[in-house]
Design a protein around this nucleic acid. Structure first.
Length: 985
DNA sequence: ACAATGAGGGTTTTT
DNA sequence: CCCTCATTGT
C-alpha cells in the first residue's frame, strides 16, 4: 500500500509554506484585491487559506463570507478543502457556490423562480415554435433551422453584455436614422451582396426575434442560465432591500477563476461589493493567460474590467510554479508570451512574468536532468497513435508511474479516435472524458428497440433490432424480401418480417415489449426494453438512461412518454446535442480529454495531439452576426477584432495544455506540407524556430511502424452481427444498372449506395427531394399542355403545384409552407420569363444506354429543338443554384449528352442547368473527349462496385444519412475498463 | 503582394 | 456541403 503514495503526495498542498506573494494575498483583509495567479502557482490554496485566516483572526464570521466558483465541481472541492482546513463546524454558514447558484438563490428568495432551459432545450423549444419568430431573412426552406444557432449566439452575447431587447431595438432605431454604421449581419465574404436596406431588415428581424424569444420564455416562466445572472442583476439594481440583505451576507467576497467572468457577472459583483473601497472586500483570483471560455461569454478583459470597477484594487501576482519542470515552463512561456498583455487602461500595474519552477529551485541536483519537451513529427494520424502508445509505454516503464499519471490532451473529441483504438489494441487501460454515448453500439441498440416498439415504421431501427444476437432471422431472406417489394411500397422491414423465417418471433418480442411498456415513461420503458432485448447495462447505457430520466423532468417535457422522447431526440440530434459520459475519477487509467476538460488538472506525463493549424489551433470561424461595438456596455477598448481574439484564445488553450504537465510533455503534429519548411504550421513551428528553446526542446520524427498491426484490428473489435450483415457482399451485380445519381451516391459513401440498392431499406425522403419532385411534375405538365395546344394558365399551374406538394406530405408543416411559398415565387418567375419558348421535343424522357457492361439509366427533364437539327438538353435544379463550374464538370450532363446521341441520335448543341432559384440558365457544352471521360468514369465506378468495394466514407454527410444508426464505421466503443468497472459496481 | 488550388475539418462546455 | 488556411506560383 505504501507504493500508492506516489509523487502526488509530495505536492499535497497544506504542508507547503507560502511564498511571500502568496502570504501577502492570504493576509489581505479589507478592500479589493486582484490576484494574478499563473498556472500551478497555488491560487486555490491562497483562496482557501485567506478564508481560514479571515475567520481565525476574527475579521468575519463564516456567514459573512461568500466564495464563488464557476463549476459545481470546483465549489464542492473548495468546500471539502475548507472543511479539512478549518473543521466542519467552523465552516457552518460559509457560502461556497457557483455564480449561477448564487444568483438563482437570490431570485428564488425573491419569489422569482423560473424553469431552466439549457442551450439545447431552448434551441428545440424555438425549433418547434419557429413560426412564431416570423423569420424572413433568417430562414431557408431547405434547412429551416439553419440560422437558429446564429440567432441564439447573438442573443446569448447580448445577455452576457447586459443588452436588453429594448436596448437592441433602440440601437436599430438609431441605425435607421443613420446615426450609427450598419453592422455586419452576414458572413464577410457576402457583405457586398446585401444592400443596406437588406441589412437593416435583418437587424429588425433580429430585434423581433430577441423580443419574441424573451416574451415566449417570460409567458411560460422559463429562462436560461444567463437569465439567472440577468435576473439577479436586475433585482439588486431595483430592490434596495434585497441589495442591503445581499451586502450584509457578503462582507467578504472571493471569486475563483476570475478570468472566466463576463460583463454581466462583474456587474453583479460590483453591486454586492458596494460602492466605497473601504467596504469593497472583494478578492478575485485567476490567470488571464488561462481564459479559455470566451465562447461562453467570458470577457477576455475580465481583469481589466475588474480594475475599472475597483480602481483601488491591490494587485498581487504569483509566479512560483510548483508543478512543472523548467523545460516545460520555458516552452509554455514562449507560446503565451506572443499574446499581448492585458491592456488595462487603469495604469497597467500588471506585467506578464515567466513562471519559475519551484521544484527545480528546490531540487537543484535534479534540475539538470529534467526531460526535455519533445516535439514528434508524424506522417499521419495513425502514426501519431502508434508512436504515442509506444512512447507512453516507455515513459511509464522509466518513471515507474501509474496509468493515472498520464494524460492525452486534444483540441476536439474526434482527434482522439485513433489513439483510443491504439490504446485498446495494446490493452492499455484508459478512460475518455465526456464521450458521447449516442454513438455507442449499446445505446444505438437500445434506441433501436425503443423505435421498433413505438415507431415501428422506422426500418433502419427495426433492422438493428432484427440483427440482435438472440434473434434468428436469415439476413439473405430478409434482404431478398426487401428487394422484392414493389418500388412504391412503403412496407419496409416491418412489412416483410411476417413472411420470413424468424421474423414473426421478432415481431412477437416487439409486441410483447409494447404491451409490457405501455403507459410507462421513457426511462422506465428503456430499462424494461434493455432487459427484454438483452442490451447490456454498461456505463454508456446507464448514462443514457440517466439522460432520459433528466429529460422527463425538463420544464417543457409533457407526458414523458417514449414517443415524446423519440421526437425530442430527433430534434436533439438536429441541435447536435450529445449525452456525455462522465469519466470515473479514481480509476487507475490513462486519461483522454479535451484541453478544456483538463483545465485545473495536472499529470506527470502529458501528450498533446495534432498540434497543427487548423486542428490546434483551430481554424477561425466567423459568426454570422457581428456584435457591434456600439452595443457594448463593457468599455474595455482592446482594439482587436474577433478573429484576433480567437487566435489569442487558441494560444491560451495551448498554453493551458502545456502547463498541465509535471515531468514530461510530448507534443505531436503532422509534418507541414511545404517543400521548404517541413515543420507543422502553428505553435510547434514557432517553438522549433525559437533559438532560446534549443536547450529545452527536442525534435524527432516518428518511429517506423510494423505493418502487422493493421491485421489485428478486426480481431480486437468483436463485430456486431449487424456489421456482419452490412458487410455482406451484395446479392446481385449492383454495377449492371447505374444512374447519374447512383454514381453520385457511390462517390459520397459506397456503403450508403450498397444499403440503398442492395437492401432497399426505406429511409426518410428529404423535404428538398419532395419539393424537387413536385416542381418537376408541374413543369412537365406545363410543357405537355403546351404541346397539346392547351397551355395551362398561371393560376392553374399554381393550384396544381399546391395540390401536388400537399400530396408529397412534407413532414414538417412549417417547412411545407415555406416550400409552398418558394415554389409559387419560382413558378411565377419561371412563367414570366418564359413567354416565347422554342419547340419542346421531350419532357421527362427515360433512357438507357450501354457503357461497358453497365446499363446506364436516367431521365432527361427536357429537350428542346435548336438550329441545324440539334437539341438543347435542360435539367431543372430546385436546390441551391448551380454555378458555371458545376455545369462544366457535371457527370450528369455528360451522361445526358451521351444518351441523347445514342438513344435518339441527337447532337446536343448545348446542355443547360435551369436554376429555378433565381431563374437562371447555366449553359455548357461537351467535347467528344469529355464524353469519353464520362464513360471512363462510369466504368471506373462500375469496376469498384463489381470488386465489392463498399467501405463507408465518413464525413459531414453522415449527419443527414438515413443509415446513421446502423453504420458500423461511426460506432464508438466505451473503453473496456469502463465497462469492467461498471460490472463490479 | 495576391490568386489559385487543394486539403482538412466541421469546436470547445458550465450553469 | 461550406469554410479556412497553407502553399506555391504569378
Amino acid at each position: 500500500m505504501l507504493l500508492l503514495s506516489g509523487p502526488h503526495q509530495v505536492n499535497s498542498k497544506p504542508h507547503i509554506l507560502p511564498d511571500p506573494q502568496q502570504q501577502q494575498a492570504i493576509e489581505h483583509v479589507h478592500g479589493p484585491m486582484l490576484v494574478v495567479a499563473g498556472a500551478g502557482t497555488g491560487k486555490t490554496t491562497v483562496l482557501i487559506r485567506r478564508i481560514a485566516s479571515l475567520i481565525r483572526d476574527g475579521h468575519a464570521r463564516p456567514d459573512e463570507i461568500i466564495a464563488l466558483t464557476y463549476t459545481d465541481n470546483a465549489a464542492a472541492q473548495m468546500r471539502d478543502r475548507l472543511g479539512a482546513e478549518l473543521g466542519k463546524r467552523e465552516v457552518q454558514g460559509l457560502q461556497v457556490c457557483t455564480f449561477h447558484a448564487y444568483c438563482n438563490e437570490l431570485l428564488i428568495a425573491a419569489d422569482r423562480k423560473f424553469g431552466v432551459l439549457d442551450d439545447k432545450q431552448l434551441w428545440i423549444f424555438l425549433r418547434k415554435n419557429l413560426r412564431e419568430l416570423k423569420l424572413n431573412h433568417f430562414v431557408r426552406a431547405a434547412n429551416v433551422s439553419k440560422f437558429l444557432d446564429d440567432l441564439l449566439d447573438f442573443i446569448r452575447r447580448c445577455h452576457d453584455e447586459l443588452v436588453t431587447p429594448e436596448a437592441y431595438r433602440n440601437y436599430v432605431c438609431r441605425l435607421e436614422k443613420g446615426e450609427l454604421p450598419i453592422p455586419r449581419v452576414t458572413k464577410s465574404k457576402d457583405i457586398d451582396e446585401i444592400s443596406d436596406e437588406e441589412a437593416l431588415g435583418r437587424c429588425r428581424e433580429i430585434a423581433f426575434v430577441f423580443e419574441t424569444v424573451e416574451r415566449m420564455l417570460r409567458e411560460r416562466n422559463l429562462g436560461t442560465f444567463s437569465h439567472m445572472i440577468l435576473g439577479a442583476n436586475d433585482l439588486l439594481a431595483n430592490n434596495p432591500e434585497v441589495l442591503a440583505k445581499a451586502r450584509g451576507r457578503a462582507k467578504f467576497i472571493l471569486v475563483d477563476e476570475f478570468q472566466d467572468a463576463n460583463f454581466a457577472q462583474i456587474e453583479v459583483l460590483g453591486k454586492i461589493a458596494g460602492g466605497n473601497s473601504e467596504t469593497q472586500n472583494i478578492f478575485a483570483v485567476g490567470d488571464p493567460d488561462q481564459g479559455i471560455y470566451r465562447f461562453r461569454g467570458a470577457s477576455s478583459e475580465a481583469f481589466d474590467l475588474f480594475l475599472q470597477r475597483f480602481p483601488d484594487a491591490k494587485l498581487v501576482s504569483l509566479t512560483r510554479n510548483r508543478r512543472s519542470t523548467t523545460p516545460i515552463l520555458k516552452s509554455a512561456y514562449a507560446v503565451i508570451d506572443k499574446n499581448p498583455e492585458i491592456s488595462s487602461q487603469s495604469g497597467a500595474p500588471y506585467r506578464r512574468e515567466p513562471l519559475l519552477s519551484a521544484r527545480d529551485e528546490q531540487e537543484r541536483e535534479l534540475a539538470s536532468k529534467r526531460a526535455l519537451v519533445e516535439a514528434v513529427l508524424v506522417t499521419s494520424a495513425f502514426m501519431e497513435a502508434t508512436d504515442l502508445v509506444t512512447t507512453l509505454l516507455d515513459r511509464r516503464k522509466r518513471s515507474r508511474c501509474q496509468w493515472k499519471d498520464i494524460a492525452i490532451l486534444y483540441r476536439i473529441h474526434t482527434h482522439r479516435d485513433e489513439v483510443a483504438n491504439e490504446l485498446a489494441r495494446n490493452n492499455v487501460p484508459f478512460s475518455i472524458e465526456a464521450m458521447d454515448v449516442l454513438d455507442t453500439p449499446e445505446v444505438r441498440d437500445l434506441l433501436a428497440c425503443l423505435s421498433a416498439v413505438f415507431m415501428p415504421g422506422d426500418s433502419a431501427s427495426l433492422l438493428r433490432v432484427v440483427a440482435l444476437r438472440q434473434f434468428t432471422v436469415d439476413p439473405n431472406a430478409l434482404r431478398s424480401a426487401l428487394k422484392s417489394l414493389p418500388r412504391d411500397s412503403n412496407a419496409g422491414v416491418l412489412g416483410v418480417l411476417p413472411i420470413i423465417p424468424g421474423g414473426p418471433e421478432v415481431l412477437g418480442s416487439i409486441d410483447k415489449a409494447r404491451a409490457s411498456t405501455s403507459g410507462l415513461k421513457a426511462n422506465s420503458a428503456l430499462m424494461s426494453l434493455a432487459r427484454q432485448f438483452q442490451v447490456p447495462r454498461n456505463s454508456a447505457v446507464n448514462a443514457f438512461l440517466e439522460f432520459a430520466q433528466k429529460w422527463q423532468e425538463f420544464p417543457l417535457t409533457e407526458s414523458g412518454s417514449p414517443t415524446e422522447f423519440l421526437e425530442y431526440l430527433e430534434y436533439f440530434r438536429e441541435a447536435r446535442g450529445t449525452v456525455p459520459l462522465a469519466m470515473t475519477e479514481e480509476e487507475n487509467s490513462v486519461k483522454l480529454m479535451t484541453v478544456h476538460g483538463a483545465k485545473g488538472l495536472e499529470y506527470e506525463h502529458v501528450f498533446v495531439l495534432r498540434a497543427t493549424k487548423p486542428s490546434f489551433p483551430a481554424a477561425y470561424r466567423e459568426s454570422l452576426i457581428d456584435f457591434p461595438r456600439e452595443l457594448r456596455n463593457s468599455t474595455s477598448f482592446s482594439d482587436f477584432d474577433d478573429k484576433t481574439l480567437c487566435e489569442h484564445e487558441e494560444r491560451r488553450l495551448f498554453y493551458v495544455a502545456m502547463t498541465r504537465a509535471r515531468d514530461t510533455l510530448t507534443i505531436y503534429a503532422p509534418f507541414g506540407r511545404g517543400e521548404k519548411d517541413k515543420t507543422p504550421p502553428g505553435y510547434l513551428r514557432e517553438l522549433l524556430k525559437a533559438r532560446e528553446l534549443k536547450p529545452v526542446l527536442r525534435e524527432r520524427n516518428c518511429r517506423e511502424f510494423q505493418t502487422a498491426i493493421f491485421a489485428e484490428e478486426e480481431v480486437l473489435t468483436p463485430a456486431s452481427r449487424l456489421s456482419e450483415w452490412v458487410g455482406m457482399p451484395p446479392a446481385s451485380d449492383l454495377a449492371s444498372t447505374l444512374s447519374a445519381s447512383a454514381i453520385d451516391n457511390y462517390k459520397l459513401c459506397p456503403l450508403r449506395f450498397k444499403l440503398d440498392r442492395d437492401w432497399r431499406i426505406p429511409g426518410d425522403v428529404s423535404a428538398a427531394l419532395q419539393y424537387g419532385a413536385s416542381m418537376h411534375r408541374v413543369l412537365r405538365t406545363y410543357y405537355d399542355s403546351i404541346k397539346l395546344g392547351r397551355a395551362k394558365t398561371e393560376p392553374e399551374l399554381l393550384q396544381l403545384f399546391r395540390d401536388d406538394l400537399r400530396s408529397e406530405a412534407i413532414a414538417d408543416p412549417y417547412q411545407h409552407d415555406l416550400y409552398e411559398q418558394q415554389g409559387i415565387a419560382q413558378l411565377k418567375e419561371f412563367l414570366a420569363a418564359n413567354e416565347s419558348h422554342t419547340e419542346v421535343l421531350h419532357t421527362e424522357e427515360y433512357f438507357n444506354i450501354k457503357i461497358g457492361a453497365t446499363t446506364l439509366v436516367g431521365r432527361i427533364d427536357r429537350m428542346d429543338r435548336a438550329g441545324d437539327g440539334r437539341v438543347v438538353i435542360v435539367d431543372y435544379k430546385t436546390g441551391k443554384p448551380k454555378s458555371q463550374e458545376d455545369a462544366d464538370e457535371s457527370l450528369q450532363l455528360s451522361l445526358y449528352a451521351l444518351a441523347a446521341s445514342e438513344k435518339w441520335g441527337y447532337i446536343p448543341e448545348r446542355l443547360e442547368f435551369h436554376n429555378l432559384d433565381g431563374n437562371t440558365l447555366i449553359s455548357t457544352v461537351r467535347s467528344a473527349i469529355q464524353l469519353e471521360e464520362a464513360r471512363i468514369e462510369v466504368e471506373k465506378i462500375a469496376v469498384k462496385i463489381a470488386e465489392g468495394k463498399f467501405d463507408p466514407k465518413i464525413g459531414y454527410h453522415c449527419n443527414s444519412c438515413a443509415y446513421r444508426g446502423i453504420c458500423p464505421k461511426t460506432e464508438k466503443r466505451v473503453p473496456e475498463i469502463a465497462i469492467a468497472v461498471e460490472q463490479v459496481n
